[in-house]
């Protein structure tokens, strides 16, 4: 049940969007309030579908909502 290398701006975006509550956001994207709390505390990495729903509800791209909290892993196709 450890943390995730992905950070997010969900808490800030909630406040920028009229200070919507965790419960309101949870209902908007079809999850529970506990999951919103876990996301904000970086204890859970969402599925791609949930990440895209969260980005959609804030009118942002996924990259605007989620980010690597440390340096991203060094990945290459070569």
């Amino acid at each position: 049940m450890s943390g995730t290398p992905l950070g997010n701006h969900i808490r800030r975006l909630r406040f920028e969007h009229g200070e919507i509550s965790q419960e309101t956001l949870a209902q908007a994207v079809g999850i529970t309030r506990q999951t919103v709390i876990a996301l904000e505390q970086r204890r859970y990495a969402p599925s791609l579908e949930l990440a895209m729903k969260l980005a959609l509800v804030f009118g942002r791209s996924v990259d605007d909502v989620f980010f690597w909290s440390d340096a991203p892993p060094d990945l290459s196709l070569e």
């Binding site: 999850i31 529970t32 999951t35 876990a38």
Partner: peptide, 13 residues
């Protein structure tokens, strides 16, 4: 009843 993907993840653990 209401559950989401995190509940499914916890259930898988």
């Amino acid at each position: 009843p209401r559950s989401d993907e995190r509940d499914a993840w916890i259930a898988s653990r």
